[in-house]
Write a protein that binds this DNA or RNA. Structure first.
Lengths: 231, 231
DNA sequence: GCATTTATTTGCGTATGCATTAAAAGATGC
DNA sequence: GCATCTTTTAATGCATACGCAAATAAATGC
């Protein structure tokens, strides 16, 4: 739910219309109000958000570079669907870059309190699983991965992973309630956490790599079964 | 030198002014005509390129998302410098994603002719080294890496690597003529090539990974010595 | 009827003007 | 001289307007 902009602070006192448009459109995409594969005229969106075409266009350009939509000359902006193949690509990128982050995080020699948020995310996931609260689990899972990447200390990795995670989140609506209860998943998280805490970089990388690959196979499998055209 | 846009075809018959601006600005940045760290008003650039502020703004937005520049409200667009730390980050990303590409390429079971361009790039590098033509070597090296990523078959990896390679190219002006003759480098390329040809995915990944890490250490070392502020 | 041409609509790309507001310059007080 | 307040400047963010080209509809020929 954070900005995830390529590298910007975005903590302005007065958010510009263009930035509000970016957030509004993102939310509309994630909520499904703008469904995958649908086309929308710039003027239509402008009216919908109560501003002129100019900031809408700028926002669309930004979101295009994030891979959420596409500007097609006469067809309007098209909300990009996420296919099973896309998801495979995305997960492969996530696997590599997050594993790098895990490795680096382990090398950093972080102390107890540096790793608190990471550990907390794991605890939260356990609780969510106990309560069968999948939404809460997904939120904590996201926190874990975001925190992991933050600890990795590479701002570019952070930006790219945030971008890819956005795409994953869009598919979650579809997949979250079909997939098996992610019990095994949290064992993985814990194992990665321990490797980082112990400063074992190779192990951290290796464990996280495997974890993500398994997640990829599960998700892609689900998406291929439920071949509901798009999203 | 190709577009490297996030995912667009960009093969329009009539390139829009905005797209021409993107290319023009990119070239001006790479050539050093717009030097790292310098600020430029939108109106100034607009006049320079003979168009209005609108397409310039759109181009700037695009290039901002590529990490080449930054739009600062009243200061104009700032051409981002590339520090040694930046380069370390960039190379880490390149290392991971290209190694993935090498692994996947090896798994694909490519035949002789699929790998022709990759092999040719290696031959060209050998020739360039023999002639001590560093520019030609750099061009062939870029071709090798681009081709490798293409063979990997992940469009997102391709887009991200293209983006990161852009940043690397900017530093090359500084580093190319200081670094030792890249003789060893081409041995690495050849080893990677062979692993891919033999379908040994693990080996391909491993070799390329090492290759890129070494390149990173050399480059970052050079940049840290020649701490010429920016670029 | 069907294909092909012509007319019409319409969405986009770009130019332009203006209000806003941050920064620079200047004025004032001490 | 220095700091603070006021004025001026000027770059941006946005709204608006317009021409062009693409897509659609209408018309014409066969």
């Amino acid at each position: 739910m954070q900005s995830g902009d390529t590298l910007k602070a975005t903590q302005n006192s007065s958010p510009s219309n263009a930035q509000r448009a970016v957030h509004a459109l993102r939310n509309m995409i994630f909520s499904g109000e703008l469904s995958a594969g649908s086309d929308h005229l710039e003027s239509e969106l402008a009216e919908r958000l109560g501003m002129s075409r100019t900031p809408i266009r700028e926002a669309a350009l930004t979101l295009e570079s994030q891979g959420l939509l596409e500007l097609r000359p006469r067809k309007g902006v098209r909300i990009l669907p996420v296919s099973a193949d896309d998801m495979r690509e995305i997960y492969d990128v996530l696997t590599e870059l997050e594993s790098l982050a895990a490795e680096r995080a382990a090398q950093m020699g972080y102390g107890q309190k540096d790793l608190r948020d990471l550990g907390q995310a794991i605890v939260d996931m356990d609780e969510a699983i106990a309560k069968q609260d999948l939404e809460a689990w997904a939120a904590a899972d996201e926190r874990f991965h975001r925190e992991l990447v933050r600890l990795g200390g590479n701002s570019r990795v952070k930006a790219i992973v945030a971008m890819m995670s956005d795409q994953v989140r869009r598919a979650r609506t579809t997949t979250l309630f079909i997939r098996p209860l992610p019990t095994k998943s949290n064992e993985d998280h814990r194992a990665v956490f321990q490797a980082i805490r112990d400063g074992d970089a190779d192990l951290a990388r290796q464990r996280h790599h495997k974890h993500r690959q398994q997640a990829r196979d599960i998700l892609v499998g689900l998406l291929e079964k439920h071949k509901l055209s798009g999203l």
